[in-house]
Write a protein that binds this DNA or RNA. Structure first.
Length: 288
DNA sequence: GATCCGTGGTG
DNA sequence: TCACCAAGGAT
């Protein structure tokens, strides 16, 4: 396999975006919060929310001392609000099991709520300078094209970690840069729809390019339609709860004109089951 | 491994 | 317009 690390490192040094979590001294807690927010939410939407969160809760213990409702409300419209709940739980776990310090090894991080293969390794590598393969959707696309000669990546799988590990250089510092560079390349050059191969530092060794950019198909499952979905109903309900000045809403006032009342009631039940809402005495509210 | 889970920008 | 896509994780 051709050397991908060297051109990626050189390209990254020249072209890396200036993102908040890349600033020197940003801190492991800041990195962890940013990674939670970045799970399926675009960079441009995360940045405006990150500073306010960290000013309000500068440490895991600060967040752990607040009610989950405050975390869900601060999460605002970032989407997938379970992440706010999970980040809050992770903060409690960090306080109780790790003396308030974000763990620096993969296994300890994986044991925390809401942290999986990507986030655990991102914290180890980007916050602590450790060595591990960090694989996100951008990296999977870059590897699928450059290494496998495919137009789109296969669905995420464990073997992606080994594939990334295989291109990491010996030095831990360089390996960290290659991890970041692969993500960056996928985000700004080797994009999903219209890749800018003329600006790609590894175009001369890209298997997909060498094969003539074949359409190798896409076996990833398509996202379910949002319009009319339970997710849409849950989102509408949770927005009502976030925006409620009194922090409690009579059940009859929760999206009363929803087109499908059974779907609305099902969504309320599922929010309660997820811990995102609580019901008592005919009132619905965010979790205390 | 398949499915579920928000929200908004974009080609 | 509208399907696609976005620094994933839990079940």
């Amino acid at each position: 396999m051709p050397d991908l690390a060297t051109p990626l490192i050189e390209w990254y040094r020249e072209n890396a975006r200036d993102l908040p979590w890349r600033r020197a001294g940003f801190g492991a807690w800041g990195v962890l919060v940013s990674e939670f927010m970045l799970q399926q939410t675009p960079v441009a939407r995360v940045i405006p929310h990150l500073e306010g969160w960290l000013e309000r809760w500068p440490s895991p213990a600060d967040l752990a001392a607040s009610a989950p409702a405050d975390a869900v409300r601060q999460w605002a419209n970032l989407g997938y609000p379970r992440r706010a709940l999970w980040l809050h739980r992770a903060a409690i776990e960090i306080r109780d099991r790790h003396t308030g310090v974000v763990p620096r090894d993969v296994d300890a991080l994986l044991a925390l709520t809401g942290i999986g293969d990507y986030t655990a390794r991102a914290v180890v590598v980007f916050a602590y300078g450790g060595r591990a393969p960090v694989v996100d959707t951008n990296t999977r696309r870059v590897l699928a094209r450059a290494v496998d000669g495919r137009s789109q990546p296969a669905p995420a799988a464990k073997r992606d970690l080994a594939a990334m590990d295989a291109i990491l250089p010996p030095s831990d510092d360089d390996a960290a840069i290659v991890n970041a560079a692969a993500m960056e390349l996928g985000a700004v050059v080797c994009t999903a729809r219209a890749p800018r191969c003329d600006a790609c530092p590894i175009a001369d060794r890209c298997a997909w390019r060498a094969a003539g950019y074949p359409d190798t198909g896409d076996d990833r499952r398509r996202q379910a339609r949002y319009e009319g979905s339970d997710r849409q109903a849950r989102g509408a309900i949770l927005k009502v709860l976030r925006d409620a000045a009194t922090h409690a809403v009579p059940l009859g006032d929760v999206v009363p004109d929803w087109h499908d009342p059974r779907q609305r009631d099902r969504a309320i039940d599922s929010l309660i089951a997820d811990g995102l809402a609580e019901a008592s005495e005919g009132l619905l509210r965010l979790p205390s």
